[in-house]
Design a protein around this nucleic acid. Sequence first.
DNA 1: TCCCGTTTTCGACTATGAGTCGGAAACAGG
DNA 2: CCTGTTTCCGACTCATAGTCGAAAACGGGA
Lengths: 232, 232
Amino acid sequence: MARPTEHEVLAAVLQIREGSLQVLAWQRARPPDEGRWALPGGRLGDDEDVERSVRRQLAEKVDVREVTHVEQISVFSSPDRVPGVRQIATAFLGLVPSDSDPEVPSDTAWHPLSGLPLTAFDHAAIVEAAHDRLRAKLSYTNLGFALAPREFTISALRGLYVAALGHPVSATNLQRVLTRRRLLEPTGEVSPPGPAGGRPAALFRFTDRVLHVTDAFAVLRPPSEQLRGAVP
Amino acid sequence: MARPTEHEVLAAVLQIREGSLQVLAWQRARPPDEGRWALPGGRLGDDEDVERSVRRQLAEKVDVREVTHVEQISVFSSPDRVPGVRQIATAFLGLVPSDSDPEVPSDTAWHPLSGLPLTAFDHAAIVEAAHDRLRAKLSYTNLGFALAPREFTISALRGLYVAALGHPVSATNLQRVLTRRRLLEPTGEVSPPGPAGGRPAALFRFTDRVLHVTDAFAVLRPPSEQLRGAVP
DNA sequence: TCCCGTTTTCGACTATGAGTCGGAAACAGG
DNA sequence: CCTGTTTCCGACTCATAGTCGAAAACGGGA
């Protein structure tokens, strides 16, 4: 006799706010874990897959159009992860660009990853896993597009990478690495200098706004094909 | 009224056999999809998480001790992926070293990834995803340990990488890349030459037999810390 | 108008590690 | 002892990341 099993989806929605990486959470008003902070999500519907479900449930917390990337992280399925019922969760990473400030319900707020309040169930581990995934993919994909505004200066982009990666990043190197992979391109426009003056910064955008891994990062790549000769 | 939902685990167990990458599958004897080939797996038990479950269920097909690596791939949750019931699957990649030949039940067999027979449900997509994951991780982790015997020659290892990656690999380069990352180390022993003679090949082993990503592969890494000065 | 501090930009240089190549080394067989 | 075979290993090239500093382009005030 199988214990009744429920399936839920949960999302760690991350955004860079005021220079630090923050996560969206809501405070539980009822037991179990009353008062603790939980990730948005809920039960999987009958006619949707997990990805559709998490997007639907996020729409109840923030405007979906502001979530620029959603990605499956892992299944959390420990038998006692939620007291009482057998509940299996598919966890997601969600990203919101730094220039949007979605309206959120009154029980919901952003929290910096460093210094999270008391979290419900195993949601802290989910946030951790989402952060790890973000750090990894920032460095070998174009995932930066999901954190950045449509147009930005290199130093603004540098700030985003520093906040997400947690270590210094050279602006010169960042620009060169991203442009030579054709991930970044200049818009031609410039942004006016700040209050202290300074040279106006050129504006850039990501060439592609869907995830796409750079194949050149891989080691042990296929042999160089030299140049494919023209037809004889 | 929620439709009753079941949760199952499925594994694409891969092994290099006779120079080609093959997957373990069993032939369904009953509808639905009777006669088609399915991946090993089954229903999640009440007191186990998905990882324990897939290892348990694999034990019914092959000796678990021969599975050197198990890794979660993704959740497959399309509402109509299995006719009749609402069934959600957590898919895994499993690896078996090339020198073991586990006994399998009579309904079970290995099939080359190129030229799979008719597969049940969405299992072909799972195999595809597992293959992609294997290719990716072979090039920036030490995952090769899970495909290789405990000790091997460089050219034998090269054969495994060629079969798994699907493109030529230089033996010289393979050895250098893996040894400089401290993933490979010589045992000191040599293997006797083949029937045609030739110089005896040195034997190697993987230094670590658990998965472990090389941090040096990442681009945009933290700034060099030069040399940490000695204590004053 | 002319300095000056600020910020960005861009080139040059260095360092690291991957891909390639060819010759030397070590075996079996005749 | 010679030949064919396989492995080993050093040297070279090449691609790309990390570093540094000077020049460019602004605002503000003397």
